[in-house]
Design a protein around this nucleic acid. Sequence first.
DNA 1: TATTGTTATACTCTATAACTATA
DNA 2: TATAGTTATAGAGTATAACAATA
Lengths: 167, 167
Amino acid sequence: MSSNVDKTTAAGAMAAATAKDARSPAIEIGPLAGMIGYVLRRAQLAVFDDVIANFSELDLRPAEYSVLVLLGHAPGAKQSDVAAALGIQRANFVVLFDRLERRGLARRSSAPNDRRSYALYLTDEGEKVLARATSLESQHERVLDEKLGPGGRERLLELLGKLAERG
Amino acid sequence: MSSNVDKTTAAGAMAAATAKDARSPAIEIGPLAGMIGYVLRRAQLAVFDDVIANFSELDLRPAEYSVLVLLGHAPGAKQSDVAAALGIQRANFVVLFDRLERRGLARRSSAPNDRRSYALYLTDEGEKVLARATSLESQHERVLDEKLGPGGRERLLELLGKLAERG
DNA sequence: TATTGTTATACTCTATAACTATA
DNA sequence: TATAGTTATAGAGTATAACAATA
């Protein structure tokens, strides 16, 4: 999963872009630094890299964590509703959830009124993994808060919420 | 590339998550709404979807546009430096640039001092496409400014810049 | 007829290893 | 020995079509 050979990752690029080293005649990103989409993408990649690194002991991907969080918050939710709430295609959600189920972290239960659908629940093991992951995630949020400064989180979440509105 | 059958995209999910419709018993994302990484990802997807839609007449992907912008800003830059500045792996950049070259938008020129490397340039056609794309992109930035409100852009770029710093 | 879950498939993006030609 | 470009490949993530079971 990790290596230190031929590292030209986003991290490396950002470092190179700001370094003043005669051996790396790095070029500036210029006008891209003022484009919301570009800066947003780079920030998202940096944050996700940290999340993935923080979850490494759990072998849990961000999308999988979001499913666990949602099941902790809305146990018994319908499979298609969970997928829709997270913006995941039904077809892709099947595979994602299969993995959680095979690992014993979540389970499908037959829904009471509709024999087509499933009600989804965390297992006891899933509750434990969710608790541990949330602890790691909380630590990470505190690191982000240090980077953002006082009031930064509130301002950022408000602005990002406006961007996420569709239409 | 587009269709209106079975749309369970992130857009649909966000709409469903906020709608009050008896036929869509949508569930709330709960704690996810307070997590920087999750909100950041949803915002980035929404913005990129708009960028891609705005560029549809040019058949230009965000990463390709970023290369054109960089070549407009730093003509003659080395291939590996452009890739590093954008956080793209050398190996993947080759394929990306091949497509721009085949379309006649950019070209590789032999570098003066190093026969291993290339100096990259826009073609005249590439300049035209860059100009058109930048015009479309500017329009999009103004739409984003309306969403963000007065001072929103400046605050957002500053906060995102802090998140993008690695370490 | 429409919806739920499912399978299969394809396309993009990304990461790594290995090669070549130069330095 | 190290670097620039390249090729090939594999893994994620994502999108679409089609099907069976059920509504």
